[in-house]
Simulated scan of single mutants.
Amino acid sequence: MKRSAALNDLEARLGHRFDRPELLSRALTHASMSGPGREDNQRLEFLGDRVLGLVMAEALLDRDPTAAEGALAPRYNALVRKETCAEVAAACGIGEALRLGRSERMSGGRRKMALLGDAMEAVIAAVYADGGFDAAKALILRLWGDRIDRVERDARDPKTALQEWAQGRGLSPPAYVETGREGPDHQPVFTIEARLTTGESASAVASSKRQAEQAAAAELLDRLEGRQ
């Protein structure tokens, strides 16, 4: 398969050069674009979810050899949840490279958390199929970066964590304001802004209000605590 400039750029951001670039192409193909001779990324997503889970379980055990299962489970869930996969996908530009049908493109599919998270898992599986477990593990640890080290904070509900931050400083609880809505009624995409009374704010986009609120809270908390 001949590589496009877009695939070359994405390979560079991922840090993996594919021997079989068709695997990456398949990982980026949403079901809305599948058809004769063109496979979508659903089977790869299924595999990538399992590879990600194994890598994260191993990483958490290595970093905290004395932690009980009850302490490890919420950290693990925070690292492998769809929201985190979508954040990582957006950070390395997977959204721009997605192959979507017209309806998905028109409804903001490149920004949808579910599509981004699924594509990230599919890309992990593509790397696994192309280069083996060690290559997939290296990719995951590189892209997740310091999320693994700060997972204890991330394991908390972001809205609860932001409210605790505000209350600890004598502030009113944050407000969540819907500032945008796109797409058809059966598949809306919401933009939510988290606001503090002191003026700080952050926005996020997701396919449900709850997910957008959580993402906006996490974004604002990151800024407030100096992580961005």
Rank of each mutant, 00 (worst) to 15 (best):
A5W: 06
A6S: 15
D9R: 06
A12N: 07
R13S: 10
L14E: 04
L14T: 07
F18I: 07
D19G: 14
P21F: 08
P21Q: 09
P21N: 12
L23W: 10
L23D: 04
L28Q: 02
A31P: 11
S32V: 04
Q42H: 13
L44Y: 12
E45C: 07
E45G: 04
F46M: 10
G48A: 06
R50T: 03
L54N: 06
L54S: 10
M56T: 05
A59G: 05
L60E: 06
L60Y: 07
R63S: 13
D64V: 02
T66F: 13
T66D: 15
E69K: 12
L72C: 00
P74R: 05
R75T: 00
R75Y: 00
N77S: 09
V80G: 09
R81H: 11
K82H: 04
K82Y: 03
K82L: 08
E83T: 14
C85M: 10
A91M: 05
A97K: 01
L100F: 07
G101K: 03
R102M: 13
E104G: 01
G108K: 12
R111S: 14
A114E: 11
D118Y: 05
A119D: 06
M120Y: 13
E121V: 01
A122C: 09
V123K: 00
A125G: 04
A125T: 04
A125W: 10
D130V: 12
G131V: 09
G132Q: 14
F133K: 13
A135K: 11
I140Y: 01
R142L: 02
W144D: 06
D146A: 08
D149Y: 09
A155H: 02
P158W: 08
L162S: 06
G170H: 09
L171A: 07
A175N: 02
Y176T: 01
G180D: 09
G180Q: 10
E182V: 09
H186R: 12
P188H: 10
V189I: 09
T191G: 10
I192Y: 00
E193L: 08
A194S: 15
R195E: 05
L196P: 11
T198P: 11
G199Y: 03
E200P: 11
A202F: 05
S203D: 10
A204S: 15
A206Q: 04
S207N: 14
A218W: 07
R223G: 12
L224E: 06
G226L: 01
G226Q: 04
